[in-house]
């Protein structure tokens, strides 16, 4: 049974790749909004945004990469709910396969989708004048962190899809995860203008930590004040820990949700 995990996951990975090849516009669904953000925020509001020790163009890109990864929640969640709804999950469950492959095939194929989106976004960033000011190793570390965030988000998306079961409902629930993550953190604006209590919450948001880590790794301004919260003093390590902890919690919950969802009448 264990020996089937790899082969079965590859078969299902292949399924998602075929679907992506047939409908490549899905990449645009994920990247169009962040591209709009870069243009709108970068050019229209950018002039009114002040980032301590840096300019807004180089500040916003980390946030945009985070936004793309957060879109995985909806993307993956809708896909999982659709499989459940049209009975595909029932079919998989009646096959002598490694069941966890259904989730592995999907999450890993969504990582690949994220890689493609990142390359696209990287090009857009370079065109509007964003630059990575560090070295190749640090830059790569940054992108690996982006993908780790995306991987975590696809698992959260899987879980929401399995619990909500309705593709339309997934959108609404996913928004409740992605909206606060995006706007109650330093993804798009420095926190220094927020009231103190809100600043305290936002500083502890995992998204603020990841954003700070990315900015540090890419040599972009972090926009954090002189005495930030603890995770922001060691942003790379904190991000890795926070995301790993999330995965350790979410993966078993999701596998359980898969089991339950498939077992409901």
């Amino acid at each position: 049974m264990k020996s089937y995990i790899l082969g079965d996951s590859l078969a299902l990975f292949g399924r998602h790749m075929t679907l992506l090849k047939r409908a490549p516009q899905r990449i645009l669904h994920v990247t169009l909004m962040p591209i709009m953000f870069v243009i709108l925020f970068g050019y229209l509001f950018g002039s009114s945004m002040t980032v301590p020790s840096g300019d807004y163009h180089s500040y916003i890109m980390a946030g945009v990469f985070i936004q793309i990864m957060l879109a995985s929640v909806v993307n993956t969640g809708v896909g999982v709910a659709t499989d459940l709804k049209n009975g595909l999950v029932d079919r998989f469950r009646s096959l002598p396969m490694a069941q966890v492959s259904v989730l592995l095939g999907r999450t890993f194929s969504d990582v690949l989708l994220n890689v493609i989106s990142c390359v696209l976004m990287l090009s857009v960033g370079l065109v509007i004048g964003w630059r990575i000011e560090s070295n190749v190793i640090k830059a790569t570390e940054g992108f690996l962190l982006v993908l780790l965030l995306g991987f975590t988000m696809t698992w959260i998306g899987c879980m929401i899809g399995l619990l909500v079961r309705e593709p339309q409902g997934v959108n609404a629930v996913a928004m409740m995860v992605t909206m606060p993550s995006t706007f109650l953190s330093s993804t798009f604006y420095p926190l220094n203008n927020l009231p103190d209590w809100l600043q305290a919450i936002a500083q502890w948001s995992p998204m603020t930590t990841v954003a700070t880590a990315l900015r540090e790794l890419w040599g972009n301004p972090t926009g954090n004040g002189a005495d930030p919260a603890l995770p922001l003093r060691y942003p790379v390590l904190s991000s890795a820990l926070m995301l790993s902890a999330l995965l350790v919690v979410v993966i078993p919950l999701t596998t359980r949700a898969y089991d339950r969802a498939a077992r409901k009448g």
Binding site: A11, L12, G14, R15, T18, L19, G87, S94, P96
Partner: peptide, 28 residues
Amino acid sequence: IGLTGQYAALDAGLTGRENLVLVATLMH
């Protein structure tokens, strides 16, 4: 066993052949 449920449990985005190859592959 083979199971045919109340809804056609197929991936609408894949071709008929791809659907069957997927099932056959998952049956090893």
